[in-house]
């Protein structure tokens, strides 16, 4: 499926990011991470908070410059692309997306306006472009005129998704898109993403700290702890029958934050089996 003639849509090879500041200065916050996604596929990156998941996504679109490794889009190194083009083709939706000033329509049409594919001013013509995008993310047409700073968390996340879709990306990176939402809103965003994945050729990389969510969303993925890939493969198998102690700890909800270092030396206590299912934070 992914030979040289048919490269994966997105491939990440031995990607590394070194912290430039703060308490972790000099440490590798992303360390030799590799994975690939085929066109139309959904790949899930699971890991406790602080494990480098967000940094990984930001390095893929070069919001942070990777210190090692390569990112290939359709088999081509992304450093050969103009940065703006890379970011147009590979969208990133943040955990808590910042809304731009203006209306929801202004937000959704930000990308098309950059490329002059849409009138500068809000008006009937602009609304005609914005409304279908809002409908794709399950927002009614009258949202177009709403001030963007008056949205709820779930609404803002949908607008951020519509804003990313307006760029007609080929790959969409989602950084914990539901972690700041209440359970109902979170479930709805999840359903929306599942529907999007079904109905389009879009390739997804989904980041989450929530194991149950990871299993619902993708079938391939990896577990990231302290910037390193602990285990990688088909998600249900990997989580039900972990090959690694850290995966087992994570699957039982006993791995959170940057605690891997101490846990790595301290072998888990007996009885930490898959039946011992704790809930994740």
């Amino acid at each position: 499926m992914t030979d040289d003639a048919h490269p994966p849509k997105l491939a990440v090879h031995e990607l590394g990011v070194v912290a430039r500041r703060g308490a972790e200065e000099g440490q590798r916050i992303v360390d030799a991470v590799s994975f690939f996604v085929i066109q139309g596929g959904v790949f899930t990156v699971v890991g406790p908070s602080g494990s480098g998941k967000s940094t990984l996504l930001r390095a893929v679109v070069r919001l942070i410059e990777p210190d090692a490794g390569r990112v290939l889009l359709d088999g081509r190194d992304v450093t050969a692309l103009p940065v703006a083009e890379l970011r147009r083709r590979v969208g990133l939706v943040f955990q808590r997306p910042a809304m731009f000033e203006g209306t929801v329509a202004d937000n959704v049409l930000y990308g098309p306006r950059l490329r002059r594919e849409c009138p500068e001013r809000d008006g009937p013509e602009a609304r005609d472009l914005a409304v279908p995008l809002l409908e794709r993310v399950g927002l009614p047409a009258d949202f177009a005129g709403k001030p963007a700073d008056e949205l709820s968390g779930g609404e803002a996340q949908r607008v951020a998704l519509a804003r990313a879709l307006a760029n007609r990306p080929e790959v969409l990176l989602l950084d914990e898109p539901t972690s700041s939402l209440d359970p109902t809103a979170s479930r709805r965003i999840e359903e929306l993403l599942a529907a999007l994945a079904e109905s389009t050729d879009l390739t997804f990389v989904f980041v989450t700290h929530d194991l149950h969510q990871a299993r619902r969303i993708g079938d391939h993925g990896l577990l990231l702890v302290e910037g390193r890939v602990v285990e990688q493969g088909r998600l249900p198998g990997m989580l039900d029958d972990p090959a690694h102690d850290l995966t087992r700890l994570f699957a039982t909800g006993r791995l959170s934050g940057r605690t891997g270092e101490s846990l790595r030396d301290e072998r888990p206590a007996a009885g930490a089996g898959p039946d011992d299912t704790g809930t994740l934070p």
């Binding site: 679109v61 919001l63 703006a84 083009e85 970011r87 147009r88 969208g91 990133l92 943040f94 997306p97 910042a98 731009f100 930000y110 990308g111 950059l114 490329r115 951020a160 804003r163 990313a164 760029n167």
Partner: peptide
């Protein structure tokens, strides 16, 4: 960064 991520 949201603007940069959209290709600005």
């Amino acid at each position: 960064e949201a603007a940069l991520a959209l290709g600005a």
